[in-house]
Each structure stands twice: as C-alpha cells, then as structure tokens.
Design a protein around this nucleic acid. Structure first.
Lengths: 216, 216
DNA sequence: TAGATTGTTAATCGATTAACAATC
DNA sequence: TAGATTGTTAATCGATTAACAATC
C-alpha cells in the first residue's frame, strides 16, 4: 500500500510541460489568479477533460466555478519535475546540433545545466561553443564523476551512437537524450528518450506529395 | 469507391521511416535478399505483427517462410514518401538550431533540399552557414514563389513563431516543421508538425528525480 | 440564484499485441 | 516433410472524449 508508486507516462509529462510553458509565457500571476481547463484546452487545442485529468494526476485541485490557481499549477509542475533544480548534463558531439543544444537558453531556463561538451575531433577541441569549451572524450569519465552527472545528451553521428552510449553508461550516466538516428541497445535500467528528428521527414514528405497532386 | 483514400497515420509513417533507415544502414542487398518481420522487430524493439501490418498498409507483400524482399520494401517506402525526389524547403532562423538543420546531411540524403536560410538579424545576413548564405526576410516571398517551395522550417524564437508562420503561409507554404515551442494557430489545410524539443525535459527530469532518491 | 466549472465515471476510439490458419 | 513465416482476425490494452452530478 505504501510503496505504490504511479509512474506518470510520457504523454502526460509532455502535456504538463506544455501547460507550464504556456502559463508562464502567457499569463501574468499579478493580473490573473486562475485558469480554467477549457481556457487552456482552447489555447493548446486539447480536450478540457484531458487537462483536468492531467492536473488530477499530480494532485492539483481546481475550484468549481473558478478554475485552477495559476500559482498552484506552476509550483506543482515545477516541483514534480524539479524545474528549479539544476540538472547537470554532458553533451557528446560538438557539431552544429550539439552546439545548438549546448547553447539554447530555452533549456537552461528549465534547469538544464550543460557542464561539458565533448568531441573527438582534434580540430574542434578547445573551441568555445555557447559558453562551453569543447573537451576531448578522454575527459568524459572524470567530468561525469566529478559533477555527478546522470544525464547524457548524444548528438553524435549514427555510427558513433552505440559506442558513445555504452561509454557514458559505463561512466555512470542513467538517463540519455538521444538525438542520433540510431536505435540504442542499453541495460533495462537506463532511461532513453529518442528524438529521432529524421523520422519527421516521413510525415512531412507524405503530406507534401499529397498536395503536389491536388487533382483527386 | 474510387476516391477512397487511406491517410496513413503519423505513427505508421514514423515507423516506416525507421524501417527504411535501419534496412539501408544495416543490410546489404548484395548479400541478403530478404528480411523477416521478427528480425526487424528484434532490432527495433517492436512487435513483429506491427511490422507486418505497417508493410501491408503500403501494399508490400512478404513471402511465407522467407520474409520480405529488401529491395521491394526499400523501393515501396521510397516511392510512398518520395525519398528520391528533391523537396525544396526554406528555413527561418539562422541561429544555431536553424544552422544545424540547414547543414545536416542526414536530412539531405532523404531528399530535403534547403533552398534558403533567412534571418532578420543584420549581423547574420550574408554569413555562410552549411553552404547557405543567410538572407534577409525581405527575400522570403520571392524565393518561395520562385522555387515553388511548399515546406517551411521554423527555427525562430518563441515570440516570433506565430508571425513567421503566418508569413510563410501567406507566401504559399503548405507544410510546416515547427521547432519553436510555440503552439501555432493556422488554417486547417496547413499541415504542421511540432517538434517541441523542450517538452522532452519533462520526462528526462522526472526520471532523473526518481533516480536521485533510490531509497524507496 | 443561475451559470460555470470541476471531478470523475462511463463510453468511445484507436493502437498494439496475441493467436493461428495458410502455406512455402 | 517439418519448421518458419506471413497475413489477418480477434483480443487486449490504453488513451481520449463525452457526459453529468456536484457545487461554488
């Protein structure tokens, strides 16, 4: 009874992040105190029941006739995800994508803290990218240990992905954000989120092809 | 009966793209002629029925006792998505992310053809990024018309996203790949794929927090 | 008060997985 | 042939949406 723990699923977590983002970007707690599920639903093109359910999952209670307290929603999501904490991470691959990830302020504002950026290309080592000096991969293990890093971000080429993943896991990484197209094979207890940007092309091209021939 | 058209859904399209990628990266049609659904399923951690169903959707027939002809699978997916065609696209936003998208060879190899990269920052205009000269937004409409561009890629800051989207749509864009966190409001007939990278942080942090306190 | 909104259950929808006959 | 594999239907699972009593 006590150890019963509900793992919140991916879709719910993604939506909660969207709620948080929209509220903090668009509502001013000084002028508005509450937000209703139908208001949020309209803005994000979602069903209002969905929003009430998601908020119920994390224990946020609304007030009938009024809506949800903005501050309570913000604080609850922030606590659930630890958005006020600093989450140290390492980035592997100092190409354009790795550089973009390392220097994107949108991530920083949520608490992502890139502590180091690695590459094995001697030409890149020593370069300054988004406030980070590119370091050789030799330093990987010591940096991970020293900063207690648990999150690894892979922005390496396809062929280097599995090897990079194995190496960061061996060094103590427990969560991986994989931007490479490769399907990684890792121990069960390592959590991996695949970004797989290239698969989007399937949907984009499919829709483009259907537009090209509008004589149906 | 004739006009009956099955729209293939997002999940199926994404998986087909994964099949295509894995097969072309890992199998050599010279040495192996077929691949079985269970083989693919094992490699991609999917259910084998799923794969047979997806291939049935696009009309690929396997051979009982043997599997699916690799060439047939490749050709069918390539034709469905038009992976051999060139798909012209414009990128808005020449920051690090826009630059990464514009210069990523993985996309080019599938037929994505970035014809222009735009920014409104005078300091960036004229710069060469991944083989593209950064152009001022003034050129947007003429480039879209001249090259018959139907695909727009948004890599602009949150606050500029809606305005950028409206502008490319007005110029003739029909499909949008949105990398900004903003929720875009656009006409029904415009297809939008949201990438929303920041929502991934919710899941990553949630899992990190659960690791931090392993005394459950 | 009347109207608006939550909280929650039930209904629906859709996607995934299991199962197995067909068959090479 | 026996074993392997497809093709497809049925079963299951899970997520979304509808509905509405509770109520401020």
């Amino acid at each position: 009874m006590a150890g019963q723990e509900n793992i919140i699923n991916r879709l719910t977590l993604d939506r909660l992040m969207q709620y948080y983002h929209w509220i903090t970007e668009n509502l001013d707690p000084k002028t508005e105190a509450t937000v209703s599920s139908s208001q949020l639903a309209k803005q994000l093109t979602l069903d209002d029941s969905q929003i009430r359910k998601d908020l119920a999952v994390i224990g946020v209670k609304g007030q009938r006739h009024v809506g949800f307290d903005i501050q309570e929603v913000i604080v609850s999501i922030r606590q659930l995800l630890g958005l006020s904490k600093s989450h140290p991470a390492v980035v592997l691959g100092a190409g354009r994508l790795g550089g973009a990830i390392s220097s994107y302020n949108g991530f920083v504002s949520y608490g992502l803290n890139i502590v180091a950026l690695f590459d094995n290309d001697p030409a890149k080592i020593g370069l300054m990218i988004g406030g980070h000096v590119v370091q050789p991969l030799d330093h990987l293990e010591s940096v991970i240990k020293q900063s207690n890093v648990l999150l690894g971000i892979l922005a390496v080429p396809d062929h280097a992905a599995q090897e990079s993943a194995d190496r960061v896991v061996a060094a103590g990484i427990r969560v991986i954000w994989n931007f490479s197209p490769a399907h990684l094979r890792l121990p069960e207890d390592i959590f991996v989120r695949h970004e797989r940007l290239f698969v989007a092309l399937a949907q984009l091209f499919y829709h483009l092809n259907r537009i090209d021939i509008p004589n149906g």
